[in-house]
Design a protein around this nucleic acid. Sequence first.
DNA 1: ATGGTTGGTCGCCAA
Length: 275
Amino acid sequence: MPYFQSSTALALPVKIATWNLNSIRARLPRVLAALERHEPDLLCVQETKSMNDKFPYEELAEVGYVASAHGQKTYNGVALLLRSGEGQLENVRNGFEGNPIPEQARVISGVFNGIQIVNAYVVNGKEVGDPKFEMKLAWLDALDVWLKKEFDPTKPFLICGDFNITPDDRDVWDVEKWQGRIFCTDRERAFVQGLHDWGLQDLQRKFSDEAGLFTWWDYRGGSHPRNLGLRIDLMLASKTLASNCVAFEVDREERRKSTGEGAPSDHAPVIAQFS
DNA sequence: ATGGTTGGTCGCCAA
């Protein structure tokens, strides 16, 4: 049954977050601390780099979260972390129909409090000209076909995650350096533009049109303190849901250097509040 | 063009 036939009524308020963890086990103390700090009703995570049999379900349960994981050995991996007792998460599905690389765990979806949600970890693509870049475009094309077949952008709908695409030049720390390069090509940006044309709104852009609102900073070269980053972690919502988005935050502090909780991910958590 | 850093896993590949 397509998701748009789901009859669950929209139930607000909810706080929804997305975060590329770069390993859920290496990041676990920081994940637990961030859950207690932000108290999201649903946290969508990417790059868990964990098979389900090694997923830290019990540690998450101790801080009140129930995980639905779509894992894989060594690479990729996505999951939905639901705050216990705070909402309904139904119809959870791993992957998507038509995926040209189904062995890579990059998409998990479900219906949360009446919101159709897709959590995606888009193929990186390595560099323009590499076969992996062509696979990225083929993967995006297949995801686009599935989204438009499976979901209804006139209903409450959200796609979030690590897009590995900068929507436009404001989302790039050095436009000249990145011109035409991976994450910044017209062919990649056409995917995001196509979702706008379909009826989705970039929730961060509802609140600010500033340049430099980054969500990812390279581990190398001290890029975070100098704010040499990219905005590639996005939350795109249908208009009916976007109209209920009352706050948006990038937890840039979380990306700062090591604490007693260990090293940070190279991505910051991104959080949206709906009322 | 290369390098720099991190993680999974244990020699590299991926990001």
